[in-house]
Amino acid sequence: MQVLRSGVAQVTGVKLDKPQAAITSLGKRVRQSLVPSGQTYPSKGRHGETSFSGAGRYVVYQVAPHLVDADFLVECGGKRLGSGHATSWQYGDFGGAAQCGVKTGDKTRIADMALQLAC
Rank of each mutant, 00 (worst) to 15 (best):
R29Q: 10
T104L: 01
S37M: 09
C119E: 15
K107R: 08
Q32Y: 04
G7L: 05
R57L: 12
G101S: 11
F72R: 07
G82K: 06
G82Y: 03
V14C: 07
T50Q: 12
Q99V: 12
C119Y: 07
E49A: 14
S43F: 05
Q62N: 08
L67D: 01
G95A: 07
F72K: 12
Q62F: 05
V35C: 02
G92P: 04
T87I: 12
G95K: 02
W89R: 13
A86M: 08
A97H: 09
L117I: 10
V35H: 03
A98Y: 05
V102P: 02
Q62K: 01
P65R: 07
V11Y: 12
E49R: 10
G54K: 06
D106E: 03
G7C: 02
P65T: 01
R57P: 02
G96A: 02
Q32V: 05
V11P: 04
R46L: 13
T40S: 10
K28N: 15
H66Q: 13
G48H: 02
S6P: 00
A98E: 06
G101T: 09
K103S: 14
E75D: 04
T87F: 08
Y58W: 15
V68E: 07
Q2W: 09
S37W: 05
M113T: 12
T108G: 01
P19L: 12
D106P: 04
V59R: 02
S43P: 07
P65I: 01
R31G: 07
L73Y: 09
D93P: 09
V74P: 00
A86H: 08
D69P: 00
W89A: 07
S25G: 12
Q32M: 14
G84K: 06
G101K: 14
K79T: 15
D69E: 14
M1L: 10
G92K: 03
K107Y: 07
G45Q: 04
R31Q: 07
Q10H: 11
L81Q: 11
Q20H: 07
T87L: 12
C119Q: 11
L73I: 00
V14Y: 09
E75I: 10
R31N: 14
K103C: 00
K44I: 09
V68T: 06
L26G: 06
T87A: 12
V3I: 15
